[in-house]
Design a protein around this nucleic acid. Structure first.
Lengths: 248, 248
DNA sequence: CCGCGATGTGAAAATCCTGTGAAGGGGTCG
DNA sequence: CGACCCCTTCACAGGATTTTCACATCGCGG
């Protein structure tokens, strides 16, 4: 994904140009955004109540109050993205609008698709800083609990003590439980590049992993070898064979 | 102040149009922004090392690689604000550029002041997003009380005496208690741009933080290192080790 | 049953990562 | 202008981790 996906946006379009609004609304519907169409600018307070993500507004409707209105609108605590879309203007006007807090200024006549793209870009940019921590679900298998948020695996609350590579290897295999992951894929996913001929890193790390997993969760086997192919994650309670009454 | 004050911005201008660049640079100096002027587009990796807040680029210099370049540039974890400033273009081209992650698209000929205002708006927009996601609620952990409203942490009512960066680092880590925050994420959240290879700022600040926290709240450990990954905030009352009977 | 290549194993060698102290630069304020 | 604060960068040390190597085992086909 090149940029953030165009998630749903609550948008208001304040414009009396019915032709423009109609075409814009059509495109709006196509991308699934909910939009309020307002032929006349409401008080800023009313817009505030709508909890909008973005607003497209033709400042021509505001008359002499335009600058005050924009300033007020953009000065709110949780101000929406403001895109001014109006007729011909001077550089000074555009600069003033942007400096007052507007996020973009599009000059009519313009293509609705571009207006949308610009709203999208502005919303994306604002959201970019917000949610970045992904709520990562743990993967459980057998006695193992693999927690991506800790870069660590646990058995009954005790950490296994994995290094970064070890964890990533385990995580990759456990993400496809029961399926064989080819050696080459392991290599390119965990190491990030193609496997060089004769490289044994994967084998060595599988061994380290098995050792630590055996120590942390004895009696279980998690990693299975598929000769000539790769490895498979599949938690199995092993048969006890040395000591007699290990299990009950 | 109508909107956010135009704080210092590290900007790169990638354009071979010396006339345009010269005029732009003049205005740049007037507002006190540091700017790199690049007549030819460097690899995206080099731009990353510069740790820019924003970049103004004429895509005409990129030739057929333009879209790929833009996508790569905007696809980074902590991508800078990207403003494309180039000659005549079609609606489809502008939409494509914006969808790929560009923040604005200005058509030449244009006034440097407007370009600046647009960069400013985009930077402001991003910073707004970063702030809005930060709750004002204090975070408590161990003896520590972290108060975002004061940019300071307290132990028993006494201020720890954190600098801005120290506070933001602590705040970020403490916002995800018990979870490991990767170094890159720390960097892009606290510093606001991608981490350059070999940068040790995070380590240095962790050390400063630990020192101050230890002084303010002795006997407690708050910051834990996860080798090869990052750091984790998790208040723990430390074992006393000067006295002999630590273990039995 | 044999041979060959693939895999398991253990340890040494090479590399990478973090802690730490300090120097240097840029900015701010009096 | 000078003092001070803060941030960045550097160099080095000590570990932890990863890679490499040599050899033992194992699986599969002939």
């Amino acid at each position: 994904m090149p940029a953030t996906a165009p998630a749903a946006v609550r948008l208001a379009v304040v414009d009396s140009d019915s032709g423009f609004v109609r075409v814009l609304a059509k495109r709006l519907g196509a991308v699934g955004w909910r939009a309020q169409l307002l032929p006349t600018p409401p008080p800023v307070e009313e817009l505030q109540v709508m909890r909008l993500h973005a607003i497209v507004i033709d400042t021509a409707l505001l008359g002499s109050e335009a600058w005050t209105y924009i300033e007020h609108l953009c000065g709110q605590a949780a101000a929406p993205v403001v895109v001014i879309c109006t007729g011909p203007s001077s550089v000074a006007q555009r600069v003033r609008g942007l400096r007052l807090g507007a996020d973009d200024w599009v000059t009519k006549p313009c293509h609705p698709e571009e207006v949308l793209a610009r709203v999208e870009a502005a919303v994306r940019r604002r959201r970019a800083g917000e949610l970045s921590s992904q709520p990562i679900e743990p993967i459980v298998g057998g006695e193992l609990e693999i927690r991506p948020d800790m870069f660590e695996a646990f058995v009954g609350g005790r950490a296994v003590g994995l290094t970064r590579r070890e964890f990533e290897l385990l995580h990759l295999l456990a993400a496809a439980p029961g399926r064989v992951v080819p050696r080459e894929r392991v290599y390119e996913r965990v190491w990030g590049y193609a496997m060089a001929h004769g490289d044994r890193s994967v084998d060595v790390f599988v061994r380290k992993l098995r050792k630590k997993l055996e120590a942390a969760s004895p009696g279980w086997v998690y990693l299975h070898t598929h000769f000539g192919v790769g490895y498979r994650f599949d938690p199995q309670e092993a048969e006890e064979k040395e000591t007699e009454e290990v299990d009950r």
